[in-house]
Computed example of a mutant assay.
Amino acid sequence: MKATLGTAVLGLSALLGTTAFAQDNTLTINSFGGAYEEAHRACVITPFEAATGAKVNVVTAYSADAFAQLRAQKAAPQFDVIHFSGGQEIVAAAEGLLAPIDKASLSNAADLYDFAKADLANGQGPAYSIAAIGLVFNTEAVPAAPTKWTDLLNPEYGEHLVLTDISNGYGMLSFLMLNQVEGGDLSNIQPGLDAVGKLLDAGAVVVSTSPEIQQEFAQNDAWIAPYASDYAFTLRKAGLPSGFVQGEEGTPASYITANLVAGRPNNELALKFIDLEISAEAQKCFAEALRYSPTNAKTELSPEVAADVAYGEAGVAGLIRFDPATIEAHRTAWVEEWNKAIAR
């Protein structure tokens, strides 16, 4: 990672040139804590501070909490750059809490895949990483490596299948994909609920958190779980034989976005920070550290890392983004129906 960080610092230094910032040389951002925040500091924050002399104040806040703070601070926002992973930027932009971004103000915007920069002019910041949802599996235990979402219905998996509760964001996306391959859509989740009922009857278990998935793989002979690509890497680091595959029918995606907060005095500096986040160097660092999928087409990954993410034109072609606004509008009702389905 040191080489990557050095490259990021050099790249940012070239990007900034000799630009002087007349405004306050301080940014306030949020990050998501834990291993993510460690990578965020290593891949972006520390190189940015080193290259600019700026100070980055980090508030540890996940997407929902960060959005609540942004709303509460509407009259006097405290964040300069705010990061979301649950689609909150769609609502925040509609409410005028985020500032539109001119693509010309980001030197790396031209290198982003189109989906990652589609709504900059509307105030939705660029996606700088993707959590790709697919099939995490025990490479030594499965009779054959899965290739598609309908493989989850394979009777051979039975009691070796782990599902994640839809109160978990990755669990929600996994369920919606299962619902889709079973013939449902965001207006009808019954096919997915019916499929879950069959899987539970066959012995599948439901967990709520990532550590519980690891426990199932480590102690309870789990073979397969629909979940995010980064977690296969987490399992492997824990000494468990695990792989990740994108299902042939498509790959649900959680977009991690960097957004410019409206009403702040130092947007120029904030845009430089966002520009580093979308750079190929920073995204390579994130992929190596956490196995998040890059959105910059120029990001170059080793075969080992590339195997764990949605990589390149072919890898991102199958990405599916279920509308976050629709999910949020129906979340309470869907959770209620889900709870009824798993109450057995």
Rank of each mutant, 00 (worst) to 15 (best):
M1W: 10
M1C: 10
L5V: 15
S13M: 12
D24E: 13
T28N: 06
F32I: 02
I45R: 02
I45K: 06
T46H: 11
V58L: 05
T60M: 07
A61C: 08
Y62E: 04
Y62G: 06
L70K: 13
K74Q: 14
A75I: 01
P77W: 07
P77V: 11
F84K: 06
G86C: 05
G86T: 14
L106V: 01
D114Y: 00
L120D: 01
Q124P: 00
G125M: 03
Y128S: 01
G134S: 10
T139M: 07
E140W: 04
V142E: 09
P146A: 05
K148L: 05
W149M: 12
W149S: 05
L152C: 06
L152Q: 10
L153D: 00
Y157T: 06
E159T: 11
H160S: 12
L173H: 11
S174Y: 08
M177W: 08
N179C: 13
N179G: 13
Q180K: 15
G183K: 10
S187K: 15
S187R: 13
I189G: 05
Q190A: 14
G192R: 09
A195I: 09
K198Q: 12
L199I: 12
D201F: 11
A204N: 10
V206C: 09
V207G: 08
S210G: 10
E212G: 06
E216H: 12
F217H: 02
A222S: 08
K237L: 05
G243M: 04
Q246R: 14
I256H: 08
A258F: 04
R264P: 00
R264W: 07
F273A: 05
P294N: 11
A297V: 00
T299H: 07
D308L: 13
Y311L: 07
L319F: 05
I320D: 06
R321K: 14
F322T: 08
P324V: 12
T326W: 05
T326G: 02
I327L: 13
H330L: 06
H330Q: 14
W334L: 00
V335A: 08
A343C: 06
